[in-house]
Computed example of a mutant assay.
Amino acid sequence: MSLNFAKTEFVRSAAAREHFLRDGLPQFAFAGRSNVGKSSVINRLAGRKNLAYVGASPGKTTQVNYFLVDRRAYLVDLPGYGYAKVSKAEKDRWGRLMESYFQDEGDLITVGVLIVDIRHKPTADDVTMHTWFRETGCPEIVVANKLDKLKKSQVDPALTLIRETLDLGGEDMLVPFSAEKGSGKEELLRLLSAACEG
């Protein structure tokens, strides 16, 4: 039975590892650069404009935010990375929080969702995050957001560059997506529902 993302509600923010949820429900961990449109992707999946906070300036997600989907799984919004306009101390705090989530002995992550910008080659930070997901041993879905910003002829070369940079094999999941227009939404919902069943 597929997950009903329309039934998504905010549950809590965790600023420290003792606040992480460990109740056994699947967790879909969403990660991406601060300005990649992570909150917009989450809002598009839930069919809501402002479920996840969309800031005028990037870098507003500073904690691990949990959203309960259909009372059966969590969508976990991780702090955005790679944004310059926060202090080094704050960046370090985010990094430690992310690391403790990834390394938690409860093996919290069911599926990793890495959001990249389809218009650009994935950054060194994207590659690091991709490596972290791989090291957890969980399945990963790479979502290439901002599809609406490319001409049709640019899409395949852009996806090829992402596959090469992240060293994705043929079996690895890469979903072209537009939070703006909704392209790719059904495929991503299907993959997440399948992971929940698995």
Rank of each mutant, 00 (worst) to 15 (best):
M1D: 15
L3I: 03
A6W: 07
A6G: 12
E9N: 15
R12A: 12
A15I: 11
R17V: 08
E18H: 14
E18C: 14
H19T: 11
F20Q: 00
D23P: 03
G24Q: 06
G24L: 06
G24H: 06
A29E: 00
A31K: 01
R33H: 11
S34W: 01
G37M: 03
S40Q: 03
V41A: 13
V41H: 07
G47E: 10
L51T: 02
A52M: 08
G59N: 03
G59V: 01
V64E: 00
N65K: 04
N65S: 09
R71S: 14
R71D: 14
A73Q: 05
L75W: 02
V76P: 00
V76C: 01
D77S: 09
L78M: 13
Y81K: 04
Y81A: 00
G82D: 06
K85N: 15
S87T: 15
S87G: 13
A89M: 13
K91I: 06
K91S: 14
D92S: 13
W94D: 00
W94L: 12
W94P: 01
M98F: 04
F102P: 03
F102H: 05
T110L: 05
V111Y: 01
L114G: 04
I115D: 07
I118M: 12
R119Q: 09
D126P: 04
M129L: 07
T131Y: 10
W132M: 03
R134V: 01
E135C: 12
T136S: 04
T136D: 02
E140R: 05
I141K: 06
A144F: 03
N145K: 10
L147R: 01
D148G: 11
L150Q: 09
K151E: 15
K151N: 13
K151Q: 14
S153A: 15
S153I: 09
V155D: 13
P157N: 05
L159Q: 11
T160M: 12
T160Y: 11
T160H: 12
E164G: 09
L166M: 06
D167K: 11
G169F: 12
M173Y: 10
L174E: 10
L174K: 08
L174C: 10
P176I: 03
F177V: 06
E180D: 14
E180I: 07
G182H: 04
G182R: 05
K185F: 06
L188K: 03
L188C: 07
L188A: 07
L191K: 11
A194N: 12
A194R: 13
A195P: 06
C196L: 12
E197V: 11
G198M: 10
